[in-house]
Design a binder for these strands. Structure first.
Lengths: 169, 169
DNA sequence: ATCTGAATAGTCAAATTTGACTAATCAGGT
DNA sequence: ACCTGATTAGTCAAATTTGACTATTCAGAT
């Protein structure tokens, strides 16, 4: 559901075509929703069929025409409906990385520590990237700051786990 | 991939049947992976076909027989392989709730505040539930504590956002 | 002028995931 | 002894999601 909200929300700000939407999402929002290109196209077609958005042919330069989508009045209503629902609900974030943590004791401590250190590097790099990202305006910036807060807290926790494991050895 | 790791990991501790696996995951691990019953059955069948687990018929009392799965040697290897990969990788948690945050400014402040307060209640309830959960042993407890740390940090952040919004009004 | 690799803009079959449904058994009340 | 609702254990068609593939255009090097 939040994928549709995201697409509608972006289209509400300005009309765009599929590739453009995917580009934006992939570069600025990979942290809240993971939306593959083919999924974006699928959803756009579906929402068009449902009457929430309408395509119009557009041609830029020499390139083949592409479908540019814009919100219909029904789409505007749908957007607000999904937005209200999203904001009032607590949708827990899932931690696929915790699956491994659950079975940490199935490996020798020393190996577990080494593996987690590799994870730590990747996490630190993510945090770095997020902290360096250019400042945006409005609510988007709010989301970016949320990510930074979250990543810091994750890094702290991971260090805590690694220390804990190291002390045991 | 982490869904398969989870199933293999649980089966490595003791053989189980589909329903039992789903029950366990749904009650103790909904926070790291969301695995529906039908997905569990699908994955079990697939992993059986791949030779990682083997089913054996079992009957309890009067009930119809059911498939109890146990790890094969190949499954044991696969489990360790997936575990190593999971531990060494940083798999970012996704925040579907941030989609709404991104479009917060599309609603009047007062309504946004009210909606977020509803979200806050749900989040606080989750935290409460997590804090009251019985203590487990081993690495599972580690994951549970991670969840608590995370939920506290989320509650803090949400309060921060609500305050910020309230001050603006 | 041509070649090469990157960027743009998608399509499609296959894999995965879901929700809705079925059906049997059990526990408790009446 | 019978009824009712919860629990157990699953199945299945439909919806969604993905990865791999295609094809065109553009920018820069040669």
């Amino acid at each position: 559901m939040e994928r549709e909200l995201l697409l509608l929300g972006l289209l509400q700000q300005q009309e765009m075509h599929g590739y453009q939407l995917h580009e934006f999402i992939d570069s600025y929002m990979q942290t809240c929703v993971d939306l593959k290109k083919s999924t974006a196209y699928y959803l756009l077609e579906k929402m068009a069929k449902d009457g929430f958005i309408t395509p119009s042919e557009e041609r830029e330069g020499n390139r083949p025409t592409r479908q540019v989508y814009s919100l219909t009045p029904a789409g505007e209503t749908r957007f607000l409906e999904l937005l209200r629902e999203n904001l009032s609900t607590f949708l827990p974030a899932l931690f696929p990385g915790d699956t491994g943590i659950t079975f940490l004791d199935k490996l020798p401590q020393s190996e577990a520590i080494a593996l987690l250190q590799t994870r730590r590097e990747a996490l630190a790099a993510e945090l770095d990237r997020a902290e360096k990202a250019p400042v945006h305006t409005g609510s988007l910036q709010l989301m970016i700051e949320h990510q930074i807060v979250h990543l810091r807290s994750e890094l702290d926790w991971l260090d805590h786990v690694i220390n804990h494991l190291t002390e045991q050895a």
